[in-house]
Design a protein around this nucleic acid. Structure first.
Lengths: 148, 148
DNA sequence: TCCTAACAGTTAGGCTGCCTAAATATCAAG
DNA sequence: CTTGATATTTAGGCAGCCTAACTGTTAGGA
């Protein structure tokens, strides 16, 4: 009962998938290592772009706990990329909003990172790129299923 | 010159790809958080499975520096999952070999992790799984191109 | 009105995993 | 037998995440 062919195929796919995950972590590290803004900070900063986000919401969206978000926010504030202000509707809450410098930093970091990745993807064949493109929405779906 | 359609498509793909990378990190964290053996340790342990690997080789294969590998090896040794012995051919080198307990731990961790992922993949449609399957070799290729 | 439970965030302390630099030991070549 | 390269470990440091405990605010009764 442990040799169901369908299950075997699924487990084999899972194994390959796990290897890809591991590689992704590696690629991310590489991406991070050549930038001034870490992925963690970039993620927080992006949420602070439009109007202002609450700390709890940022943490939830990034899949980390509130203190971890606070930590990044404090760093970004120190760098002048976001400002923190009391939420007018709820004095317990804090609204985090990107400054002009913060918006510029996001744009620059995003561009640099995209160019790095585009450089890699550009070296692939068109069919390879198509395969990646087709898989990306599925990856997205997988992530949501893991959510929480 | 910044509106080359091909470049734009590539950059858009890169952007989506980056999002997938971020999600992958998230999924990996989730995977790690419910296991006794961390991914870092599992990676090292797997290399120690057949016969015995050298510290430098392990580090190179995992894309980390030698001291980082040593750190994990020491932990695994403390847990009785690997043993370290001088390389008979080169006394500078150390051969790291999995113990019986180490082999069992790899099997168990691999099985649990694969089952977790298989559970997610199993909830997808066949065409979605096909898309993932088709993209995995490309991910592999991408990783190698980032290597070093 | 006042008390209390729930909630938002920060602070404190701790862990893992990675890194660089420096120390130790061995090898290999001249 | 010296010297430079190589293999690993040790020491010290940093980022990012976590839990627990603390502060302040809000909201729902009694």
């Amino acid at each position: 009962m442990n040799t169901n062919p369908a299950d075997d195929a699924l487990l084999a796919l899972a194994q390959s998938f796990r290897e890809a995950l591991r590689q992704s972590v590696y690629v991310m590290r590489r991406l991070d290592s050549e930038e001034q803004l870490s992925s963690a900070q970039l993620g927080v900063l992006k949420m602070a772009l439009d109007g202002g986000a609450r700390v709890g919401g940022i943490a939830r969206n990034l899949g980390v706990k509130v203190p971890s978000a606070t930590e990044q926010i404090i760093k970004l504030e120190g760098a002048g990329l976001v400002k923190r202000e009391a939420d007018p509707d709820d004095s317990r809450a804090v609204r985090v909003a990107a400054t002009a410098a913060g918006r510029a930093a996001v744009e620059k970091a995003d561009r640099r990172r995209n160019e790095f990745i585009a450089g890699i993807l550009g070296a692939l064949s068109q069919s390879e790129r198509d395969a990646v493109q087709a898989a990306l929405p599925v990856f997205d779906k997988i992530n949501h299923s893991v959510q929480y």
